[in-house]
Computed example of a mutant assay.
Amino acid sequence: MDKRALETVEVETAFLVRRATSISTLKKIGDLDRSAYLLLHQIASHGSAGVKALADEFRLNISTVSRQAASLEQKGYVTRIPDPTDRRAYSLEITEEGLHELQAHKQARMKRIGNLLRDWSDEELETFGRLLTKFNRTFLDEES
């Protein structure tokens, strides 16, 4: 492995995280923080899910996801669906209000990112998206 290339990826990843966090803190979009956005996106994309499944997906502990889910439920963005086989268990389902908030948030994020990447070619965007997806998936392999 090329050490210089690895060093570039390491430091550029650190800058990416810092700058992305800085932008989202300074220019908050709507009523969703990053955790809420990702939970709603997961539920909207893959269907209703229990807290344990969401915790496993995001590599978080159950109590963290439970707190985040309770906040989403309080805002009316998700609702609990009882598990018919285990009365103590439930799944979370996105509501119409949650879907609306998610879509509005996503559009604002895409506009912001689109502005940042406006000078990139379609080919560069395709390549970056593909490599970023590949990079994110390596974390799943690492934690297995």
Rank of each mutant, 00 (worst) to 15 (best):
Q68M: 15
S66Q: 03
K3Y: 03
H100K: 15
A20H: 10
A55K: 07
A108L: 04
F128I: 09
L102G: 02
E142H: 15
T138K: 12
V78Y: 01
A14T: 08
R130W: 00
L132W: 10
L99S: 04
A53N: 08
D56I: 05
R59L: 07
T127L: 14
E143P: 00
K52T: 04
A44M: 04
L16F: 03
V51M: 02
F15C: 13
L6C: 13
L125N: 03
R80S: 06
S63P: 05
L117T: 13
L54K: 00
S35P: 01
K111R: 09
R130S: 09
T133C: 04
E124Q: 06
A53W: 03
L60E: 08
A70Q: 14
F128Q: 05
Q103L: 14
I62L: 01
I23Y: 01
A36S: 09
V65G: 01
A89T: 13
R112G: 11
S24V: 15
V17S: 07
D33P: 05
Q103V: 08
A44F: 09
S48W: 02
L131Q: 01
G47E: 00
Q42Y: 09
Y90E: 05
S63E: 09
I62S: 01
S45L: 04
G76C: 07
G50W: 05
T79L: 12
R59P: 04
E143F: 13
R130G: 03
L117V: 14
V17W: 11
A14K: 00
L40W: 07
Q103D: 14
A108H: 10
T64P: 04
A70S: 14
R130Y: 11
K106T: 11
L125F: 03
I62M: 08
T25N: 15
H100P: 00
R67P: 11
L92H: 00
G30R: 12
I62F: 04
L116K: 07
H100Q: 12
L131Y: 03
L39E: 01
R112S: 15
T21F: 01
R19Y: 06
R67H: 14
Y90I: 05
E73P: 02
L39H: 03
L117D: 15
R130H: 05
A36G: 10
A55L: 00
V51F: 07
A69M: 11
R112F: 02
V51N: 02
P82H: 10
N136A: 11
R18W: 04
F135E: 05
L32S: 01
I94Q: 02
K27C: 06
T21Y: 12
H46E: 03
L38G: 00
Q103T: 15
E142D: 13
L116D: 11
R87M: 08
T95N: 02
R137S: 11
D33L: 06
L32W: 06
M110Y: 09
T133L: 14
H41T: 02
M1S: 10
N136M: 13
K75T: 12
Q103C: 02
T13P: 01
R67V: 15
S63Y: 08
I94A: 09
T79I: 07
F15Q: 07
R59Y: 04
G47Q: 07
L125V: 12
L116P: 14
D56P: 00
T95L: 08
G98N: 02
I43L: 02
I23M: 09
N136I: 13
G76M: 05
S48V: 00
I43C: 01
K27N: 15
T138Q: 12
Q107N: 14
